[in-house]
Amino acid sequence: MNTLMDKITFNGTESTKLVVINLLKHVSQSIALPILGILVFLALWSTAANNIDTSLGKFPGPGAVAEQVVNLYQEHRAERIKAEKFYQRQEERNAKRLAQDPNYQPKIRPYTGKETFWDQIITSLITVMSGFLLAAIIAIPLGIAVGLSRSLNTAINPIIQIFKPVSPLAWLPLVTMVVSALYVSDDPMFAKSFVNSLITVTLCCLWPMVINTSIGVSSIDEDWVNVSKVLQLPALKHIQKIVLPASIPAIFTGMRLSLGIAWMVLIAAEMLAQNPGLGKFVWDEFQNGSSQSLSRIMTAVLVIGLIGFLLDRSMLSIQSLLSWNKQTDLR
């Protein structure tokens, strides 16, 4: 141990140099290059933006977007203050009415003012995650069943192949009509618009998950299947101990694909059906046609991209956490 320490101290300067060089190399590759990329993009964007004139003014450049980020944040703050006052007024009114009308059941109603950009982001995130989870609950068992049984696969495959390429916009009118016909209640737990978006998202991100899961399941190493056979594992145990662990990477590939699709589908569905969320924000701004509209839409575009990226990364980290084979290069 001591000699080792000596060696290190002896070679101290040499090795530090090496480490620093390596570190620099690493930093330059993993940080400097992306920064350079972004800078070049920003430069190209602002020159391009300066040269595009629309009837609503110049195309928004990075400066305009930054300004809108501040604006949107301030609007959010202002709306929150209004909401607080709204609740205060409501309590006072309730108290006043209770004094005149003792039978009254006072009730605090949620704020009726406008949804801010931040609220829209949260709405979209909740919708996409619910739709995606619902799809996963259906798709993964279905994919496993299809992967295990060749005949089931042959039976279901044509259906999957036909529905897979269908655009969400084609589904939406059908979903809307069906939901408004079947989902009838006086005091619904979820808003109809939420159910519409959710089902549309589910319908569109079901298929990649089914396909990838089934491929993963059907291509398990023969040896492992044989091991299971030798041990005479019951069917459920077989799925739990052999199939699931073996097909985790494939399942997650499918889930990542689906989540990406889900996010894109949701924005389109929200735009078309005017369901609350980022898509509606974009459409409303387009309709408004004010001088700030384009820069607000551009801000939303960047935020949509950023959230899509974060969703993908978080899926990736869950995948690497669950995956048994840590050697595979995930990207």
Partner: peptide
């Protein structure tokens, strides 16, 4: 009216 949740066009318009 020029607020984005109402008409949303520019004040001047």
């Amino acid at each position: 009216l020029s607020q984005s949740n109402y008409v949303g066009a520019d004040y001047d318009v």
